[in-house]
């Protein structure tokens, strides 16, 4: 099963897609508010005006409900969770700790504290990688950014749990691992590197 909606939308990233939808909706809202304010000097008998507004509301209610329902049905098919993930070609164990990453190929039975790994790793491009992500101390967030600075995948690293994240590096190149959950003072220096070969 496909786990990502956005490759289907050609080169559009999820972030830019969201920005576009939002901008259009925000402009409509600002336009409508301006219209309301500018036309409010016209006087219309209150029952007639209210009737018109509430007549419109019925249509709005149905329209919005349909849009949200369709968006729900479509978007709930593209979840990042284990049940929706493609069969992995390779597993990588990731342990987050204040303030570095430990990554190594394969599964591990060690506790997060015992586990040893490097904050730099090479992985094959075009293969389904399953990252098994844990934390040795506090909450962190394992986020992968591509070389253009686009956030392409993420999952929380939580004490006491293992989160499984699936990602397929679409092309060769360097990817940054960044911590996206505030984890104490030096949080921003907690980076790692993935070389997709």
């Amino acid at each position: 099963m496909k786990t990502d909606l956005f490759p289907l939308l050609a080169a559009l990233t999820a972030q830019k897609f969201s920005g576009g939808i939002f901008l259009m909706a925000a402009l409509v809202v600002v336009g409508l508010t301006t219209y309301l304010i500018l036309t409010s000097r016209t006087r219309e008998e209150k029952y007639a005006a209210k009737k018109r507004v509430y007549g419109l509301r019925a249509r709005y209610f149905i329209g919005l409900s349909v849009i949200l329902l369709v968006a729900l049905v479509i978007s709930l098919r593209f979840l990042p969770y284990e049940r929706y993930q493609a069969k992995p070609d390779q597993t990588v164990t990731v342990v987050a700790m204040q303030w570095t990453w430990k990554m190594a190929a394969g599964s591990s039975d060690q506790t997060p504290l015992e586990f040893t790994g490097s904050n730099e790793i090479s992985l094959p491009a075009g293969k389904n990688i399953r990252f098994v992500v844990a934390s040795a101390d506090v909450n962190h967030n394992f986020a992968i950014y591509n070389s253009q600075g686009v956030l392409v995948a993420q999952t929380q690293a939580m004490p006491g749990y293992r989160n499984e994240l699936a990602y397929r590096f679409p092309e060769k190149g360097d990817y940054m691992v960044i911590c996206l959950e505030y984890c104490g003072g030096p949080h921003t220096i907690m980076t790692g590197k993935i070389h997709a070969l």
Binding site: Q15, A71, L180
Partner: peptide, 24 residues
């Protein structure tokens, strides 16, 4: 309403994985 639109966009799980913990 404008904040609400941004919230609904971000409350979509398929999009949240790209926006969660960003400045959005």
């Amino acid at each position: 309403v404008i904040g609400g639109v941004a919230a609904v966009v971000d409350s979509t799980i398929a999009i949240n994985k790209a926006l969660h913990n960003t400045l959005w």
